[in-house]
């Protein structure tokens, strides 16, 4: 009888399994980490997720939305703010990361506290310095809204709001934030060419930076201590807060460098405003310690011109089409098409 159950199960499974994702990305990219079979991308779910992303209803007093700290025009980070700002003018302890190419990430947050994109939104929704609410309260508020009952019906064929549906819809929108159309990408496709300076910068980048900021995503998605002196106020030990393992002290998630032109300030606490400061850190600011990344144990030496060349290469990672994509911005066309509250 068990065998029969399996047969029936597989018949059902084959009928409902859709293509892995409806997202387009370069064929040369690695396979995404996100399991699309559990949450296949569908237009109406992406729409719902997009409306949620821009709605301060997620915060306790309807003041803070995801967009508050993740603006599309700065590649979805909080431009010019070293530490993220939240409800009641509170200030967080870390720099809000840019959001792009999230399907390729295995863990989230600077310390990897979150193990799945679906569960990421729970952290800011709940954190007293961010949105100060709870997924339970959010679900109650959404269920009371005519607009959302209609959007959930369109997305799921059922107007009942649940935590699962809410989180999965937010994931759907986030998964569509793919940045793969920078000058770098066009050069790799053979459609454009680097200038001499960019070319020189690319070679220096590959020699000194790419073991952690690995192409084509410009991160290897690992954690590393990049030799920053500890901020005496924040005393942030990074990954160690999660694993409680002292060998993880001062290790932080290696961020992507795509769209770095738009995502200043830099580092987990936003201590550097300019890319030149970042360059100077890697050549002369590194503090040695037990957990320092092995690739930084040997001093990186760069001339002033070489630093400028690397920066000129990094600017080829800017993707204007991504930053100004109207499918990513405030969803006024979706909101105007559904019921008003």
């Amino acid at each position: 009888m068990n065998k029969l159950h399996y047969i029936l199960f597989f018949i059902l499974l084959s009928a409902f399994t859709t293509r892995e994702s409806n997202l387009s990305y370069p064929s040369s990219w690695p396979k995404p980490s996100y399991d699309f079979s559990k949450n296949p991308i569908e237009k109406n779910k992406v729409n719902l997720g997009r409306v949620l992303f821009y709605d301060p209803i997620l915060s306790d007093n309807n003041s803070i939305s995801c967009e508050s700290c993740h603006s599309p025009y700065s590649a979805f980070t909080h431009i010019d703010h070293a530490l993220s700002h939240g409800i009641y003018d509170s200030i967080g302890t870390r720099n809000s990361p840019a959001l792009m190419n999230l399907a390729w990430k295995k863990s989230f947050m600077w310390d990897g506290a979150i193990n799945n994109l679906d569960m990421q939104a729970l952290a800011p929704i709940t954190h007293p310095l961010e949105m100060g609410s709870s997924i339970k309260n959010v679900v109650i508020k959404l269920q009371a809204s005519k607009k959302y009952r209609q959007l959930y019906f369109q997305a799921y064929g059922d107007s009942t709001v649940t935590g699962e549906k809410t989180l999965k819809a937010i994931s759907q929108f986030l998964l569509t934030l793919i940045s793969a159309n920078s000058k770098y990408d066009k050069v790799m496709n053979g459609d454009e060419q680097f200038s001499t300076q960019e070319k020189n910068g690319y070679a220096l980048f590959q020699k000194n930076c790419s073991s952690c900021h690995r192409e084509p995503l410009f991160t290897n998605d690992e954690f590393a201590n990049n030799g920053l002196p500890e901020n005496p106020t924040l005393k942030d030990k990074g990954r160690m807060h999660i694993t409680l393992d002292s060998t993880d002290a001062y290790k932080f998630k290696i961020p992507t460098l795509r769209n770095i032109e738009y995502t200043f300030p830099y580092m987990h606490d936003g201590r550097f405003k300019k890319l030149s400061e970042v360059m100077n850190h890697y050549t002369s600011g590194i503090i040695d310690s037990k957990t320092l990344a092995p690739s930084l144990k040997n001093k990186i030496t760069l001339t002033q011109n070489e630093k400028v060349d690397i920066i000129s290469f990094l600017l080829t990672l800017s993707d204007k089409e991504f930053v100004f994509n109207s499918k990513h911005t405030y969803p006024k066309e979706i909101i105007s098409s559904v019921a008003k509250d």
Binding site: D35, N116, L117, D118, T162, G163, E164, L167, K168, S171
Partner: peptide, 8 residues
Amino acid sequence: TNVSGALG
């Protein structure tokens, strides 16, 4: 199940 994302 702990690493399977949002569940209902």
